[in-house]
Computed example of a mutant assay.
Amino acid sequence: MRKLVIAISMLAFACSAAFADPILDRQALMKERGKIVGGLSKVVKGEEPFDAAAVLTQLQALEANAEKFDTGVEALFPAGSDTGDTTASPKIWEDMAGFKVAEQKYLADTKAAVAAAPADVDSLKAQFETIASNCGTCHQSYRIKKG
């Protein structure tokens, strides 16, 4: 628990700092998000055993990631950062309001999963499907597929 408090405190401090390179910063956040979701996916698929405390810690990390992304969306996607080594779709800048709504829904669903603190794999599956659905919806609308 102490490590979690320290991690959240460090994340809050990091949120207050300006993003140095918006493309690299948003890619780092998405890679972190993908790693956390991947870990939860293994539990949902039965590839790893369900551990309520570990699942809750992963969900809390996902919530912290979503909060950092949500509070920094303008800094992560400033004008001109749509070119270069990025798979961010131009639609983000064309429909920033819609993009923010999609991210806020993801954040709300992640917070709901943390608040529900899944007690078994079945309850995690339902929450995970909602979170993963948000990922898919956003990627379809606001991400350019590679290759």
Rank of each mutant, 00 (worst) to 15 (best):
L29Y: 01
L62F: 12
E32T: 14
V5Y: 00
K3F: 08
G136T: 03
R33M: 11
F128L: 07
H139W: 05
A119Q: 06
M10R: 03
S41A: 15
A66C: 14
V43I: 15
S141R: 04
T71S: 09
D122S: 08
I36T: 14
A115I: 02
I8A: 03
V73Q: 06
N65S: 09
S16A: 01
W93C: 12
T130H: 00
A17Q: 09
A113W: 00
T83G: 07
I36V: 15
G34I: 00
D82K: 07
I6N: 04
P90L: 04
A75K: 05
K125D: 10
I131C: 10
L29C: 10
Q127W: 01
K105H: 13
A20W: 01
N134G: 14
F99S: 12
S16I: 06
S9M: 07
T130D: 01
I23H: 00
A52Q: 13
Y106E: 05
F77Y: 15
V121K: 15
A119M: 04
P90T: 01
L11H: 07
P49E: 07
P22E: 07
Q58P: 01
V55Q: 07
F69M: 15
D82H: 03
Q140A: 10
L11C: 14
Y142C: 08
E63L: 04
K31T: 10
Y142W: 02
T137D: 14
A53F: 06
Q27W: 00
I131Y: 05
K100Y: 02
K105A: 09
A28R: 02
T57R: 01
I6S: 08
S81P: 07
K125R: 13
Q60A: 06
K111F: 03
P78K: 01
V114N: 14
M96S: 00
L24N: 11
S89I: 07
G80E: 01
K105E: 08
K42P: 08
D51W: 00
F69V: 13
K105C: 12
R33Q: 12
V44D: 11
D95L: 06
A52E: 10
L56W: 05
K3L: 15
K31G: 11
Q127H: 12
A112N: 13
D70E: 15
L59V: 10
K42D: 15
A61Q: 14
A126V: 15
N65C: 13
E103W: 09
A20H: 09
V44C: 04
N65M: 05
T86L: 11
T87P: 13
S9I: 08
E47R: 06
C138Q: 13
V43H: 02
K100H: 03
V73C: 06
R26G: 10
D82T: 12
F13E: 14
L40Q: 06
D120L: 03
E94A: 09
A97Y: 14
A7N: 12
H139V: 08
T83P: 09
S89T: 11
